[in-house]
């Protein structure tokens, strides 16, 4: 297994949590006040609430439902209804391997951490993430490439488009554009990405 691109760093500012996915697993990607990124199972061990609905205070992520608070390694540190209790070690959120490079958040299964680092993206800056209802190969064909790491030109600008496969014939596109591109150019790339999505979804519908 390789690293899977799961989000752009700019979309998860310090002190916030966001829903994400690794294959068919729901994950929460969150960043502490000090900037530490983490990827956990998106399920509170208490009552199963999605932790991505939760909130970050300092270095902890709290569940929105009953406020159970989790820290480093997914360990539960505080149960507000029992403030005097030190939560047992067993109350722990399953964690995923996570690494951040060139403005992209990459995740992998904890017990199967890839040996190779994620692909280098020097010379590119994150632009935006789009969800689409089409299979990765349909998107790659619409782009004029193959695989999950598409490189070429969109809207007159060099781009990298990372495809993140998702269940139910969907995927995320994490798009990066050449460093230093001006705002007007980036607007064109964004519009070209929308066009790519329409093209791939239309092709998928015709195929279905």
């Amino acid at each position: 297994m390789n690293w899977t691109p799961a989000a752009l760093s700019q979309d998860i500012p310090s002190g916030s949590a966001a829903p994400g996915q690794l294959g068919d697993k729901d994950i929460v990607i969150w960043r502490s006040a000090s900037g530490r990124i983490a990827a956990w199972s998106d399920r509170c061990p208490h009552r199963g609430m999605r932790l991505s609905h939760g909130f970050v205070r300092g270095e902890f992520l709290s569940c929105i439902y009953h406020g159970w608070r989790y820290g480093d390694g997914g360990q539960c540190h505080r149960i507000p209804a029992h403030p005097e209790l030190t939560p047992p070690d067993a109350i722990k959120v399953p964690v995923f391997a996570v690494t951040e490079s060139d403005g992209v958040v990459w995740v992998a299964q904890k017990d199967a951490e890839p040996e190779a680092p994620p692909p280098g993206l020097a010379g590119f800056s994150p632009l935006r993430t789009l969800r689409l209802s089409a299979r990765p190969e349909t998107v790659a064909a619409a782009f004029g490439g193959t695989g999950l790491d598409l490189r070429g030109e969109l809207g007159g600008c060099a781009v990298v488009v990372l495809i993140q496969p998702l269940p139910d014939d969907q995927c995320n596109l994490h798009a990066l554009a050449a460093n230093g591109a001006d705002t007007a150019t980036l607007d064109r790339v964004s519009a070209a990405l929308e066009a790519l999505r329409r093209q791939a979804e239309t092709a998928e519908e015709i195929a279905a």
């Binding site: 989000a7 752009l8 500012p13 935006r128 993430t129 789009l130 969800r131 995320n172």
Partner: peptide, 9 residues
């Protein structure tokens, strides 16, 4: 709304 990072922010 999972698929809309800018809307979330």
């Amino acid at each position: 709304l999972d698929a809309y990072p800018s809307i979330r922010l």
